[in-house]
Write a protein that binds this DNA or RNA. Structure first.
Length: 431
RNA sequence: UCCGGCGUAGCUCAAUGGCAGAGCGGGUGACUGUUAAUCACUAGGUUGUAGGUUCGAAUCCUACCGCCGGAGCCA
């Protein structure tokens, strides 16, 4: 057998005999010719079998190959303008590794529910390849951003003993006859880690048991959450905008072809450059009023509100200083107006909604203890968290980026369910 | 939980009260350059489930189930 190569490297082997290992993506035929589209995970190439060039049994094998059959195929690489890749293989040899059963996913259109039932096979299609590779680049560049700035990766637990804000939106599990909950954020542990290492981030799955049936919600999704000691809200927002700029630029540089496959409007992504507009909550409410949106001051923004606000700008917009009443207990209040929390949300353009939520944290022990009591939280369960404020407390801040919403925005998708290999949402636990 | 839509062949859909169909996929055959190849032939159905109206129901009515979209919910 000749040298086994990846299809993406085909240009280096012009006029040489090589072997691919892969799967049959599609097959066309014409008389004494068989056109085999072979995918090996790196790329897809057309391999041409001419009856006069190969032994009869090889031509018969090429004829009986079914979609997604596994194969090893050997031949000479030739340049060909008629082929989508620019190259194709003139086949000399073919080994069927396994003949596939009738494949459920055909070349015609399918409904989303059917495709989700066959998610394990759907991942083989070119569109899903493009999305998952962009997801990979987003995660790779996100880690690179923090790694290059000296952040330490400190991952946080998934089993947690207590519910920060009630248990209705948490998945409950049995932990040796004790109740445990799947984490909905690593942040509280991240704060402890920041006091140990200065700048840290965690990256892992988070779980929300909300019965949300919208294009923006999953029950299991991934968040990357930096936490920084000696950091205030202003610096927090600055890190966030530089972070997003870095991710978008990395995708544009390293996964441009995938964006083209997805027919993404690349010009819109090329406008993403720090600094981003940063508007006060009051200004955001003003925007809603100007657009005749019925909105009561003091509330949180709904999906439509977020879309209207983000549509005013050509890059992500950061809204800061929300009413403390609609935000979490651990957020520090604004000195200038104690009704406002030092919180910030970043809204993606084009109506993709909140991709980042962050804040400066309350660093005073007594104030935080009062908040825990106000929210009727179990003081004992939060003892370790309050400890952080007793032993060398400092101003600190951080944020969380939702990976799937970011992938959805950068890819220009209309639903987050395609942004994760095996999504979990309402009515979807299989495969 | 609420509001709206949908459920017909493996898949995507048509048939709106009167014979249950097409395209794709499968099978058989033809073709030396196909690009979701094309062409011919062929197999494939408890019309989501249960009940009701009617001479007659995929079609109208009721309930249930499932799915989709949205709202609510969403540190």
């Amino acid at each position: 057998m000749s040298q086994i190569i990846k299809i993406k490297d085909v240009a280096q082997y012009l006029d040489q005999e090589v072997t691919f290992q892969g799967w049959l993506y599609n097959k066309r035929s014409s008389g004494k010719l068989r056109f085999l589209l072979v995918r090996d995970g790196s790329e897809t190439i057309q391999c041409v079998v001419f009856k006069g060039d190969v032994p009869e049994e090889i031509f018969d094998d090429a004829t009986k190959l079914t979609q997604e059959s596994a194969l090893r195929i050997t031949g000479v690489i030739a340049k060909d303008e008629r082929s989508a890749l620019g190259y194709e293989m003139q086949v000399k040899g073919l080994e069927i590794v396994s003949l596939a059963d009738e494949y459920p996913i055909t070349k015609k259109e399918h409904g989303t529910d059917f495709l989700m039932d066959h998610r394990h096979l759907w991942l083989r299609s070119s569109r899903q390849h493009a999305i998952i590779r962009i997801r990979h680049e987003i995660i790779r560049s996100a880690r690179e951003f923090f790694d290059d700035r000296g952040f330490t990766l400190v991952d946080t637990p998934i089993f947690t003993p207590n519910a920060a804000e009630g248990t209705t939106n948490l998945f409950e599990t049995d932990y040796f006859d004790e109740k445990a909950y799947l984490a909905q954020s690593g942040q509280l542990y991240g704060e402890a880690a920041a006091m140990a290492f200065g700048d840290i981030y965690c990256f892992g799955p988070t779980f929300r048991a909300e019965k949300s049936k919208t294009r923006r919600h999953l029950t299991e999704f991934w968040m990357i959450e930096p936490e920084m000691a000696f950091c205030d809200l202003e610096k927090d927002m600055q890190v966030a905008e530089e972070f997003i700029t870095h991710i978008v630029k990395s995708v544009l540089k390293n996964r441009r072809n995938e964006l083209v496959i997805l027919e993404r409007d690349i010009e819109k992504l090329e406008k993403i450059e720090a600094p981003f507009p940063k508007i006060h909550y009051d200004d955001a409410v003003e925007i809603l009023k100007k657009n005749n949106i019925d909105f009561e001051y003091g509330g949180d923004f709904g999906g439509t509100d977020e879309t209207v606000i983000s549509e005013q700008f050509d890059r992500p917009v950061i809204v800061h200083r929300y009413p403390a009443a609609v935000k979490a207990f651990y957020m520090k209040r604004d000195d200038k107006n104690p009704d406002l929390a030092l919180a910030m949300d970043m809204l993606a353009p084009e109506g993709y909604g909140e991709i980042i939520g962050g804040s400066q944290r309350e660093d005073d022990h007594q104030v935080l203890l009062d908040r825990v009591k106000e929210h009727n939280l179990p003081e004992k369960a939060f003892a370790w968290y309050l400890d952080i404020r007793k032993y060398g407390s400092v101003p600190h801040a951080g944020f969380g980026l939702g990976i799937e919403r970011t992938v959805s925005w950068i890819c220009g998708l209309n639903h987050v369910r395609e942004t994760i290999p095996f999504p979990r949402f309402m009515n979807r636990l299989y495969p």
